[in-house]
Computed example of a mutant assay.
Amino acid sequence: MFNDLTSVKEYLATRRSGKPRDMVSPGPDQITLQQILEMATRTPDHGKLFPWRLIVIQDRKTFAALLETAFVRANTDARQAQIDAIIAPAFMAPTLVALVFAPQASAKIPIWEQQMSVGAVGMNLLHAAHAHGFVGSWITGWACYDPNIAEALCTGDEKLAGFFYIGSAANALEERPRPDPTDIIRHWP
């Protein structure tokens, strides 16, 4: 818990994404993971539509086989080295969670607002992992857009919003380039 405003500022200033390949054990145990996932869903959601789902990927070998099958279907001339590189992310980090955008029919709430809500779940997921002492990373890439992977993990009009890797950092996290605030902040009028 944050005891004062300084703690919140320090927390926000220290959150970084880690590289999934550099995440090691320990990851969250089942109880902690459940808490992280529940915190992730405490997000703005106009209309209380819950336009998202979370999928904990437990069987990494089966997920790797899904990645391989999808990649080979799209790349019939794939070499083994390419396939090995494609399935490697299935085994990175102790914990892997897929975030699914699950749009809901609504006469009042446009899809755009639902998409922002799923994005907020993603950011909350990273914050919750960090608040529990873990490092997280939100990865999209080809697998989020592959129809075979979507068919395995999604239903109806759902789409993959990303894969979240959670674990402990094997190395110090690097600061990434950030925008100059004067380039992105405007005051109106």
Rank of each mutant, 00 (worst) to 15 (best):
A93W: 08
F163Y: 10
Q115C: 07
W52E: 11
V118K: 09
H187K: 14
A81M: 02
S7H: 09
A131V: 03
H187Q: 15
T95A: 14
T76M: 10
S106K: 15
A65V: 09
T41D: 07
K48A: 13
T95I: 12
P94L: 05
F71N: 03
A102G: 15
N148C: 03
K108F: 02
I166L: 03
L5N: 01
P177N: 05
E68L: 01
K108V: 12
T14Q: 13
T76K: 04
P28M: 06
V121H: 07
T32C: 06
R178Q: 04
S17A: 09
V118C: 02
N3L: 04
N124M: 02
A65Q: 08
L12I: 05
F91D: 14
L99I: 07
G156D: 14
S25L: 12
A161Q: 11
T155W: 03
K159Q: 12
G18W: 00
V72Y: 01
K61W: 00
A98E: 10
E175Q: 12
I109R: 04
K9W: 08
T155R: 13
G141R: 08
C144V: 03
W52P: 00
A102S: 09
M1F: 12
L153P: 01
H132I: 10
A131E: 11
A128R: 00
H130E: 15
S137L: 06
T182N: 05
S7A: 14
A64C: 13
P181I: 08
L160S: 03
K19D: 14
I31F: 14
T76Q: 14
A129M: 09
P26V: 01
T155I: 05
T155P: 03
G133D: 03
V118G: 11
W52Q: 02
H46Q: 10
V56A: 14
T6C: 10
P28W: 01
Q34K: 14
P110M: 08
A107I: 13
G133K: 00
L33P: 08
G156M: 04
S7E: 15
W188E: 15
G162I: 12
A13G: 10
P103I: 10
V56K: 07
A105P: 01
I109L: 07
R53H: 06
T69D: 08
Q115G: 09
A74Q: 06
W188Q: 11
S17C: 03
V97N: 03
I31S: 06
Q115Y: 06
T62P: 04
M123I: 10
D84N: 14
L173K: 05
Q34A: 15
T32R: 00
T6G: 09
I139A: 09
C154T: 05
E10D: 12
L99V: 13
Q58L: 11
D180V: 11
L125E: 07
G119L: 05
I55T: 04
T140E: 00
K108T: 06
L126V: 13
G162D: 08
L12H: 00
T14S: 14
R42S: 10
A13R: 13
L173M: 02
L33S: 09
F63V: 00
D180T: 11
Q104P: 07
D4V: 12
S17D: 09
A129I: 02
S17M: 12
I111P: 10
F163V: 01
F134W: 01
A143L: 00
T76P: 10
L37A: 03
Q35V: 13
A129N: 03
A81Y: 09
T140G: 12
R42A: 14
E68M: 05
